[in-house]
């Protein structure tokens, strides 16, 4: 992890940084206070915009000098034209979105590539928690079952299957454990967080 990503506690940010090029146009969906965009602008020289619905997030993002657009994710994308962005990022948010396929399709409509990160529910520690009879709570799943914003529970294998069904090309996939280290083998078992780079076939 770079110092920036460590400071933010977001190892997936490093992966995303590696996938964007200077001067690219990046749209971050659910950008919160704009941390990722700020990092990408500072370290990769991208042009960035973010969509955020939450008042506190929008306020912080404006304070951070970010081009934040206050909107619901799906409504927010409908106003953009095809291919307006090089990368459309949805980090750790897909599991909170109701219309999973629609948002992915929209991302790939307005963006050349989509970058998606999500917690892997099949991570061995999560499996252990369920084996022990409790829903998992971890670094990448930091909620109790009763207060989680997550409404879609899926695994790396599940997401691969969805991409295949939707005829979406997985250009790259990075899987991290709960310390932020890269996982090469048995990713669906040893990986806590997955980051995908997707494109239309």
């Amino acid at each position: 992890m770079t110092e920036n990503a460590i400071a933010l506690g977001r190892p997936d940010f490093d992966v995303i940084s590696g996938w964007v090029q200077p001067n690219e146009r990046v749209l971050d969906l659910g950008c919160g206070d704009g941390s990722l965009l700020k990092l990408l602008i500072a370290t990769r020289g991208v042009r960035g915009w973010g969509i955020e619905i939450d008042n506190a997030g929008v306020l912080k993002a404006i304070g951070n000098g970010i081009n934040v657009i206050q909107s619901d994710l799906e409504v927010g994308l409908s106003g953009f034209e095809n291919g307006e962005f090089d990368h459309v990022v949805l980090s750790r948010t897909l599991q909170t979105v109701r219309h999973t396929q629609r948002i992915i399709e929209e991302m790939l409509r307005v963006g050349r590539e989509a970058v998606v990160s999500f917690p892997n529910f099949a991570y061995w520690k999560n499996r252990m928690a369920v084996m022990a009879g409790r829903m998992p709570v971890s670094e990448d799943l930091p909620y109790q079952w009763f207060d989680t914003p997550n409404i879609r529970f899926f695994t790396i294998a599940d997401f691969d299957a969805l991409c295949a069904a939707m005829r979406i090309v997985v250009r790259e996939r990075m899987v991290l454990d709960d310390k932020g280290n890269t996982v090469k083998d048995e990713q669906n078992f040893l990986g806590s967080l997955a980051v995908y780079r997707l494109a239309r076939a």
Binding site: R25, W49, N55, I62, N67, I69, Q70, S71, G79, F80
Partner: peptide, 21 residues
């Protein structure tokens, strides 16, 4: 207002947009 915002984003221009409840 979103029409203005969308046009600016289309042009790659800097814009922050807040919709106040």
């Amino acid at each position: 207002s979103r029409e203005i915002v969308n046009a600016l984003v289309h042009n790659g221009q800097d814009v922050a947009y807040a919709e106040i409840a």
